[in-house]
Write a protein that binds this DNA or RNA. Structure first.
Length: 417
DNA sequence: TCTGGGGTCCTAGGACCC
DNA sequence: TCTGGGGTCCTAGGACCC
C-alpha cells in the first residue's frame, strides 16, 4: 500500500483570531492577537470561563477553560471579548471551502480543525510541504487568520505536528522524526493523554512520550485498561484511521445543557428548564429526521456534585412533549432536592424517523402533537426561533429554547480520530 | 472568587435468559 | 441444600476531545 500523506490544519487561537480579524475589518486599529486578550463567557450568568486566548495572554499564564476571574488575577490588563458562535461558523466554513479545493477527502474534526488526505494529489498541487506552505499563506491573505499545518502519514502524527511551534507554521512528523520531535515531549502532549492519565503515568515514573513508547505494554494495559494500549500505539506513531468526509460519520446522540444564571430550587422552575431543553433537543432531532430511543437528564448541583439518569424507551420518539415528559420524570427520580446549577437533556439511540412504530400504549394525541411540532418548526425556520414561544415561558425569566441550535451543520466531534 | 457546552468511547455492575 | 457459566442488555460514571 502506498504511504498516505495526511495534513492536519488547525486555526491558531481560533475564536480569538476570528474576532480579531472581524474587528480589524470593521475599522478597529487594535489587533486582539497582539495584546493580552481572551474570548470569555459572561460571569454574571455564571458562564465565566476562558474559551480562547491570545499568545500574549498565554504568556501571562492564561489558560483556556479556566475561570475568567482567575485569568484576570494572572493578567490584570486582560482584554475580554464575548463569544460569537455565528461568526465562528462563518469563518469555519470559509476555511473548509478552501481546504476542499485541494482534496476531495477533507474531514472537519472540530470547528477549527480539519484533516486533509493529500495522497495522490501531489501531481496536481505539488509536493506536500510546498502545498502546505502555499495553503497557509493563502488562508492568511484571503481570510486574515493564521493556521498551523502538520504533515505526516497518518492523522495522529499530523495532528501532533500541527501542535508544534505556533502560529503560522508548517511542521512534518514522519515516522523517522518521532524519536527526535515527539519522544522528548511530556506525556500530556500526546493526544488522548489527559490530566488523569498523565497523573497515573507520572506515578509510574513515565514522564515523556518516549517513556510511554518504551514502557511494558502489559503494564500499561494492567494500569489503564484498553486506553493503555491505545496510548502505547500512539506514542509509537501507530494509527491508521481513514479521513472521513464529515457526512460519513452519523451522529450518535444530541443533547443540550445549560448553566442557569441562578440556582434552581423548586420543581416548577426545573420543569420549565427541562421543557426548554427538551424543545431544542427535539427540534434538532426532527430537523435531522431522526428519532431517539434513549433519553437522559443530567444534573450539576451548586456544589458541583453531578449525576445523570437515563432510560431506554419502548418506541423511538422525536416529539417535544414525549421527550419532555420522560425528562421530567427522570429528573424527579434523580434530584435529591439540593440547589441545581446546571441541567441537561440528551437524546441517544438515534434512528431514522421514517418508520416510527406506534405502540398501543402510545398517547392517542401523539400524531397530533407531532404535527403541531412540525408546524411550529416550519414557522420558527422561517421567522426565527423566538417567533413562537410557549406561554409558560412568558415573564418566567427563562429562555424558551435553551442550548445551541443549528448544530446539524456542526462537525461531528469525537475524542477519537 | 467562582469554575461552559457540545460530543464519543470505555468500563463495571446488575438484571435477565438459556 | 447448594451450586454452574456465558451472553446480552441496560445504566451510571468517568475519561478524553475541541
Amino acid at each position: 500500500m502506498q504511504d498516505r500523506i495526511i495534513m492536519h490544519i488547525d486555526v491558531n487561537s481560533a475564536f480569538l483570531s476570528w474576532q480579531a480579524v472581524y474587528n480589524l475589518q470593521r475599522g478597529h486599529s487594535l489587533d486582539l492577537r497582539e495584546i493580552p486578550s481572551a474570548v470569555g463567557g459572561n460571569q454574571a450568568t455564571r458562564h465565566g470561563i476562558i474559551l480562547a486566548r491570545s499568545i500574549p495572554a498565554k504568556n501571562h499564564g492564561v489558560k483556556t477553560g479556566e475561570p475568567v476571574w482567575e485569568a484576570k488575577t494572572k493578567c490584570p490588563g486582560l482584554v475580554l471579548v464575548p463569544p460569537d458562535r455565528h461568526l465562528y461558523m462563518k469563518c469555519s466554513s470559509a476555511l473548509m471551502d478552501i481546504l476542499r479545493e485541494y482534496s476531495p477527502r477533507v474531514q472537519q474534526y472540530s470547528i477549527d480543525e480539519a484533516f486533509l488526505d493529500y495522497t495522490g494529489m501531489e501531481k496536481r498541487f505539488g509536493p506536500p510541504l510546498v502545498l502546505a506552505g502555499r495553503l497557509k499563506d493563502r488562508v492568511r491573505e484571503e481570510l486574515g487568520f493564521t493556521v498551523n499545518i502538520g504533515i505526516s502519514c497518518n492523522k495522529l502524527l499530523a495532528k501532533m505536528a500541527s501542535d508544534f511551534k505556533k502560529p503560522d507554521r508548517v511542521h512534518t512528523l514522519f515516522p523517522g522524526e518521532i524519536k527526535d520531535k515527539m519522544w522528548p515531549l511530556p506525556v500530556e502532549n500526546l493526544f488522548m493523554v489527559g490530566k488523569r492519565t498523565a497523573k497515573k503515568l507520572r506515578s509510574m515514573g513515565i514522564l515523556t512520550i518516549g517513556d510511554i513508547a518504551s514502557a511494558d505494554p502489559d503494564l500499561l494495559k494492567y494500569k489503564l485498561k484498553s486506553h493503555g494500549l491505545l496510548i502505547y500505539d500512539y506514542a509509537r506513531g501507530i494509527e491508521n484511521s481513514a479521513v472521513f468526509p464529515g457526512y460519513y460519520m452519523p451522529m450518535k446522540g444530541m443533547g443540550n445543557s445549560s448553566t442557569i444564571p441562578f440556582d434552581v430550587e423548586n420543581t416548577r422552575t426545573a420543569r420549565l428548564i427541562l421543557l426548554s431543553l427538551s424543545e431544542t433537543v427535539a427540534m434538532r432531532l426532527r430537523y435531522s429526521r431522526s428519532c431517539c430511543s434513549v433519553i437522559a437528564v443530567s444534573i450539576k448541583y451548586s456544589d458541583f456534585r453531578h449525576c445523570s439518569h437515563q432510560q431506554k424507551l419502548l418506541t423511538p420518539v422525536n416529539c417535544t412533549m414525549d421527550i419532555y415528559r420522560t425528562a421530567a420524570r427522570l429528573f424527579d427520580e434523580a434530584w435529591d432536592g439540593s440547589p441545581v446549577r446546571h441541567m441537561g437533556v440528551r437524546a441517544s439511540g438515534l434512528d431514522r424517523d421514517n418508520h416510527i412504530q406506534c405502540s398501543v400504549f402510545d398517547h392517542p394525541r401523539y400524531a397530533g402533537n407531532l404535527q403541531l411540532d412540525k408546524a411550529i418548526d416550519r414557522i420558527r425556520n422561517a421567522y426565527g426561533i423566538k417567533s413562537v414561544v410557549r406561554a409558560c415561558f412568558i415573564n418566567s425569566g427563562i429562555c424558551a429554547s435553551l442550548g445551541g441550535m443549528g448544530s446539524e451543520n456542526w462537525p461531528v466531534m469525537s475524542s477519537t480520530l
